[in-house]
Amino acid sequence: MANDTTKNRKAILVTPEACIGCRACQVACKSWNQLPAIKTTNNGTYQNPPDLASAAFNIIQYNEVPSQENPVRWLFVSRRCMHCEDAGCMTICPSGALYRTAEGAVAYDRDKCIGCKLCVTACPFDVPRYDAENKVAKCNLCDDRITAGMQPACVKTCPTGALKYGDRDELISLAKKDGFNTIYGEKDLSGLGTIFAFKDEPKLYGMKENPTIPSSVVFWHTYLKPLSLFGLGGVVAAAAIHYLAIGPHKEKEEEV
């Protein structure tokens, strides 16, 4: 189900170990994309807002994990659209609103979106959200900034280097050189456009193991979609052959 692969694919590399949970990235994203604040209530964690929203394209997930030295270890992960190579959202979208950018990101044309909400059902990471008009809203890898030669707003503002933007292959080899043995997203779904450098198990950080597109969507895309066209074409061809080879019904007197 590979979508058109882009050469020189770009990516955001998240290094959770370097993240200090300052949430400057959340603020920068809101500011660049002119997203309103969300009113939330304290639910016992510093994670705020609690989840991605139509006005929150990225959040820092605050994972609290017990360790031997401390009652809790705080593990921060930046959560946002993964810009999958096999993007379930793009595959299922009936309007063509979701599209692949030259850098390999999955962006969207808000005007085209018909608000069917199919994309979130096909997304392995529960990313797309919908605004007040039922239009899709998610990270678009700052497509507008990138085409203007700038870095994504969240990357630009990150004070520790926990977010880096650049050539995907280069980011991966750099991270490996720095001793990060697990690159989450290197191979998943033919390669994610948001990749994560870990020394620990990604599971510890709440990363989804073996993300997959729902099997009904894969089945529909691989078989049903082509079958609809070939089925129609086949029937039309068969009718034409029948008409020429056998011919229309003829009235026979003895049929009475």
């Binding site: 009904s216 089945f219 529909w220 049903l224 979609k225 129609l232 029937v235 009718a239």
Partner: peptide
């Protein structure tokens, strides 16, 4: 939504095959 999407598309196959046969 996923189930409806699958059913809608399976039923669609029946239509694309049966309707043109009927028209012919």
């Amino acid at each position: 939504l996923l189930l409806a999407h699958l059913v809608h598309n399976i039923a669609f196959i029946v239509f694309v095959i049966a309707v043109p046969v009927h028209v012919y």
